[in-house]
């Protein structure tokens, strides 16, 4: 081990190895500590937490999760989040992939202009659409509805989706498309049978990225949803915290319920996710 390390790159001279290990250890504790603390609190009751906030759980109160899930309505929030996020991600991926394919593959007047328009909204501050979207959804009876929130979420993630997929689709060799044309494939078949299967790695990355970002979305959800039965998890947790400020144990349990899906995705797809988030920021 020590040999390979020395070969790869000598460590900074001004740092002894021990000091570096200490600094990195402290930093790792700094990033993971709060999360581990949250995990211990989620299986302790508020009474236990109040006596010592940092003790390891003596008894694992798994029933906290059942109480949160059933009595504190976190099941409702969880399913609302699931419905909204899954449908928005499915729609935005399909719409985004179709647009990205057309922009990456075909030459037509205004191609770059369309791309620029779709992409530029990535820098818009959300308030520029927030207030009007509220009015528009009220006008169309979509305010306080999961459908309305889903539509808004599709529009929020569209620029990133088009951007990531266009970059990838443009790198698919043209030869494949020429061959498909000669075999008599129509344009839609090319999209369905060539672009989607070949683009699957990029599409998967986009799916995961969009899932995490929307699962965590707060601002639009808090403005566009007021009905307690339609709250998504971030809004639900925030509301629960507002009503039960002292009930730390139950808040921690609710937070864990919202974090678990993200952690599961991360465990299985950490490489894809990290690559997706870094794509484009490099180069």
């Amino acid at each position: 081990m020590a040999d390979t390390l020395a070969e790869r790159a000598p460590l900074p001279r001004f740092f002894s190895r021990g000091a570096l290990a200490l600094v990195l250890g402290i930093y790792t504790f700094y990033t993971l500590g709060p999360f581990l603390w949250l995990m211990t609190m989620s299986v302790r009751t508020t009474a236990e937490i109040s006596t010592d906030h940092y003790a390891f759980p003596k008894k694992f109160h798994w029933e906290q999760f059942r109480i949160a899930w059933i009595d504190s309505d976190f099941a409702t929030y969880f399913w609302n989040s699931t419905i909204v996020v899954v449908s928005a991600v499915a729609v935005v991926t399909l719409f985004g992939a179709a647009a990205a394919h057309a922009l990456a593959r075909y030459r037509f007047r205004g191609n770059r202009a369309v791309y620029g328009i779709l992409f530029s909204s990535i820098i818009f501050p959300p308030q520029i659409t927030l207030i009007s979207l509220y009015q528009i959804l009220v006008d169309y009876n979509l305010y306080n509805s999961l459908l309305g929130l889903t539509l808004v979420y599709v529009s929020l993630q569209l620029p990133l989706t088009v951007y990531l997929l266009e970059g990838f689709f443009a790198r698919i060799p043209q030869d494949l498309f020429d061959a498909a044309k000669i075999d008599g494939y129509g344009d839609l078949e090319i999209f369905r049978r060539i672009v989607l299967p070949i683009g699957m790695p990029a599409i998967a990355t986009t799916l995961i990225l969009n899932f995490i970002q929307l699962w965590n979305e707060f601002l639009f959800a808090v403005v566009l949803i007021t009905d307690p039965d339609k709250r998504t998890l971030p809004v639900g947790i925030r509301a629960f915290m507002g009503d039960h400020f002292q009930d730390i144990g139950m808040i921690a349990t609710g937070v864990m319920i919202s974090v678990i899906p993200v952690i599961i995705v991360y465990v299985f797809f950490s490489e894809k996710l990290i690559r997706g988030m870094t794509a484009g920021a490099i180069k």
Binding site: A99, L118, S121
Partner: peptide
């Protein structure tokens, strides 16, 4: 067919509100 859905979402839910 390829561009309309994305552009419709953009126009209706980003450009028009802005």
């Amino acid at each position: 067919i390829f561009l309309f859905p994305a552009l419709a979402v953009y126009v209706g839910l980003t450009a028009y509100p802005a």
